[in-house]
Design a protein around this nucleic acid. Structure first.
Lengths: 71, 71
DNA sequence: ACTTTATGTAAAGTAAATTTGACATAGAGT
DNA sequence: ACTCTATGTCAAATTTACTTTACATAAAGT
């Protein structure tokens, strides 16, 4: 698929949630830290399931964490 | 990732949208029909980007199309 | 100066999503 | 009976997500 049309505020949400570190978030959602880094920096977009898990950790609806910007 | 904790109402939404066929939906979101079949029958969950594209076609928020059921 | 913690990056591998091509079936229409 | 359309399925190939291991750096603390 083409370039990423999806942005996120994971970093912002991490800090709003007790300065949660990338490693802590990774542990909570069950992936490696590198995966969090890649998603945070929009290197690729996660699977839907992982996106849901991340949103769930932050207690936010998915669309508050990830936004889609179609052309 | 484990078994699918994600359900969807793509089929319902297709019929609500002028009886849209799997092939038509596939064309609109830019994937093959087999991918739509697999997702509709929850064989696997799509990428976040594809999930957004599908929701966008239906003019629905993503969480109206896909629901997450954590344990 | 040293150590620790948080973050970024990169290469090679595994796992999962998606494609391609093909075949099967049930239902609607002729 | 035949044809067409919509759907389901399967196996092999490709692409993308994700893991593992490892190294680099900047900031903060001692």
């Amino acid at each position: 698929m083409g370039k990423s049309l999806i942005s996120n505020n994971i970093r912002k949400l991490r800090f709003e949630h007790d300065e949660m570190t990338q490693q802590q978030l990774a542990d909570k959602v069950g992936v490696t830290r590198q995966t969090i880094v890649a998603i945070e920096n929009a290197k690729y977009s996660p699977s839907l399931e992982l996106a849901f898990r991340i949103a769930h950790i932050f207690g936010s609806p998915l669309e508050d964490v990830f936004s889609y910007h179609p052309k």
